[in-house]
Design a protein around this nucleic acid. Structure first.
Lengths: 344, 344
DNA sequence: GCTTGGCACTCCCGGCACGCGAGTGCCAAG
DNA sequence: CTTGGCACTCGCGTGCCGGGAGTGCCAAGC
């Protein structure tokens, strides 16, 4: 009972602070939430919560503000699931349904996510590690320049241009192309290196340098660039806070420009305590492994293709955000993107 | 002589304001620049310059600040060309030379431009309108899903996924593929529509629906998406000004998220007074055709491939920027990208 | 033992007055 | 046309003050 009310107080503080962005005091609390007790009682609870590290006051004689720990408790135990509004559901459908290709799906997803959460959105391209090669194409762009194109079952297309030392002979190229198609079709990316080992033996010594540079490039494509691409959108939402809040947006913008950082944010592997129901991951403030994002929270969810998780998407926002609503939105979008990919 | 000194005063004001970001007064002016006259004389000149609209004072008893018109005059008549430092030249080479494909060239260019100008950088992908088709590939992703890939001589790869109503027959697909390759190879994008007219007559009525939807998609690809893609980087630089300057960064970030807006910024067509020597275009403050960017200047340059201009790149920054330095940087990067594309 | 009203205390914040100093415009003399 | 002088304006930083919100503590009550 006692413990219970204390948690109710924490929940009320989080909710009020998220909506007003101002430190919340005991009096305002009893007025807005019908906890059937007096301000003085609340004050006792607040003192206890502060001792335990869930809330803090910016200065004496100010109201309380949740700490990262407070938000963590809120997310783990206090927040219900807030269902999306019908309008939001409709927006998801309308927005994503007329995407014409994978790039378009990704771009639309980013915009959608940014729009409904009013935060910075991140969407990772489907990882290639579990993808299968559908087709390989080699095209000469000039006498010594060659483009290699890998078409993958998720609809993603990878390309690379290489420069050959010797002029390219059309029949060698055709031979190489057809052998590659045979060797690689329906192979997963992780199987490609094996499939190519010893591959150059089939060619004459004269042709091997060219063949080898093509093979090297393909190996690079399937290993290095496994899940490199991430789209970013809605950065303008950062500026909304810029004015009145202790988030310096420059370090955040800087962090968001680094693909490596974005990958760390989305790729989880090491999920410490972050995962909640529905497979949504929440990292709050200092829990983030990234410099410059100490004052932000990151909410991510994986999306899948035929029940195989392929990548993640999510948002970055200030720690004082609407967690239930944002988590629902991220979850719903991830679900819908999964369904969209399944149809393909 | 008189007129001349007045211009020298304007130049000095612009230079000082750009470096200090503070309104500049008559006394500071005579101290820092050796114009051989007294502050009082400068004041007369400043009053005249203000009458003519080249400078303004934020409030009485403050120094002067250049107006958009003042910057315009400065750029048109007063600024010399500031050559790049050897370090910067070296950075350009090192940075761009090991790009592996077109995407990589574009990504590196954006980063480079943002880094050396310390501004937001924009790079447009090579326009497809003058590009030639190198190869067409059709690959079935599933029984009814099909991916169309166009490979273009600039190294750009365009793709689209379509859904067929009937199951795809491999031999029809192969037939269509080889006919498409014959019909489209070495055609420029503008010639593609002609090349495809009546194309479906060669197929049996049963196959025509599929053929037609492929043709429709190809037509869409070569018309709609002519020069759609623009890369953006260095947005963190916006925040540097955020604090102390009258640039609200939110509208700027919002504007920069719209591809359409970016295209308007880079595509010039209607270059009013903006072009200067070296083919660099400068648009200052209100000269910009875009809402939200009234307090910014945009500097762009075209880059070319085999002497055919193919697209533009440039930067967006506050009106009080180092014009000569930034113009040189944009020019140099455009030149270097052109050379890079020529080699291919 | 928890709850509650009372009360003193702290400290942020907005308003105001004040003085400084930078910068200007004007004028009369050179 | 230039220059020194001079009065004037006005933003800005400083210090002061009162109001008010919020707190912690305590003693009384249920």
């Amino acid at each position: 009972m006692l413990e219970e009310r204390r948690l109710a107080v924490l929940r009320a503080i989080v909710e009020d602070y998220v909506s007003t962005h101002e430190p919340v005091g005991s009096k305002a609390l009893v007025e807005r939430h019908h906890l059937g007790v007096s301000p003085a009682t609340i004050r006792n609870d607040m003192a206890a919560l502060e001792d335990e590290g869930y809330i803090a006051q910016p200065h004496t004689s100010a109201g309380r503000v949740p700490t990262d720990l407070g938000y963590r408790l809120f997310v783990d135990r206090l927040s219900g699931v807030k269902p999306l509004s019908p309008a939001e559901r409709r927006a998801i459908h309308q927005f994503l349904d007329d995407a014409v290709d994978l790039d378009d799906v990704m771009a639309r997803t980013v915009r959608l996510l940014a729009q409904i959460t009013k935060q910075v959105a991140l969407v990772q391209y489907p990882s290639l590690s579990r993808s299968r090669v559908r087709h390989v194409e080699l095209v000469a762009l000039s006498s010594t320049r060659l483009i290699i194109v890998l078409i993958v079952d998720s609809g993603r297309v990878e390309q690379r241009i290489i420069e050959c030392t010797a002029p390219i002979q059309e029949q060698v190229l055709a031979d190489l192309r057809s052998r590659l198609i045979v060797a690689l079709s329906d192979k997963t990316f992780t199987d490609v290196p094996d499939a190519l080992s010893g591959f150059d033996q089939a060619f004459t010594p004269d042709d091997r340098p060219m063949v080898r540079s093509v093979l090297a490039s393909i190996l690079e494509m399937v290993t290095e660039r496994l899940d490199e691409r991430i789209m970013l959108g809605g950065t303008a939402h950062l500026a909304r806070y810029g004015e009145s809040f202790p988030i310096a947006i420059q370090p955040v913008l800087e962090a968001l420009e680094e693909q490596v950082v974005l990958l760390r944010l989305l790729g989880e592997a090491n999920v410490p305590q972050g995962v909640t129901q529905q497979g949504v991951t929440v990292r709050i403030g200092h829990e983030n492994p990234v410099e410059g994002l100490e004052a932000t929270s990151v909410i991510t969810a994986r999306y899948a293709r035929r029940d195989q998780p392929v990548a993640s998407l999510g948002i970055v926002g200030p720690t004082h955000m609407d967690y239930p609503g944002t988590m629902s939105a991220v979850h719903a979008v991830a679900q819908y993107v999964s369904r969209l990919l399944d149809e393909q």
